[in-house]
């Protein structure tokens, strides 16, 4: 590989991100234009639907229409997945709940025992 050819390949590689960005932008624009042609059909069908929510969670009825359903649904997309409520499982329950549970798990006090603190 001679110096000039290597230089040309190097410059092409340096310009690769710009080239890719250009190609992707053109492709995205043409796809958006094709999609825009379907807007009237979407408007017609959307007027008959109860909500504009996407039909992505048909199996979980509480999430089929996320904007209209109860926000604190039991499941998100499936069992054991995080709750759609943003406060979901990331927030711990109040300390009192834990202390009450701990009290309940203690062995029953016998007569004459000192109260536990």
């Amino acid at each position: 590989m001679n110096d000039a050819r290597a230089r040309a390949i190097g410059l092409m590689l340096l310009a690769a991100p710009a080239l890719v960005i250009g190609v992707l932008t053109v492709d995205a624009r043409s796809r958006r234009a094709a999609r825009r042609a379907e807007e009237p059909a979407l408007a017609l069908v959307a007027a008959r639907l109860p909500t504009s929510d996407l039909a992505l969670s048909g199996g979980a009825r509480w999430l089929r229409a996320a904007s209209l359903e109860e926000p604190g649904a039991a499941f998100a997309d499936g069992p054991a997945l995080p709750d759609p409520d943003p406060a979901g499982g990331a927030m711990a329950p109040p300390v009192e709940v834990w202390s009450v549970a701990a009290e309940r798990s203690l062995p029953p006090r016998r007569e004459g025992d000192a109260p536990k603190r």
């Binding site: 890719v20 960005i21 796809r31 992505l56 199996g59 979980a60």
Partner: peptide, 25 residues
């Protein structure tokens, strides 16, 4: 996206523009 038996197969439309692609780069 999630999943279900009746999974929509329609292709998605890109919304990326030059600014976003440049941002990632």
């Amino acid at each position: 996206v999630g999943w279900s038996v009746l999974y929509p197969r329609a292709s998605l439309t890109p919304v990326v523009d030059v600014a976003q692609l440049l941002g990632v780069t």
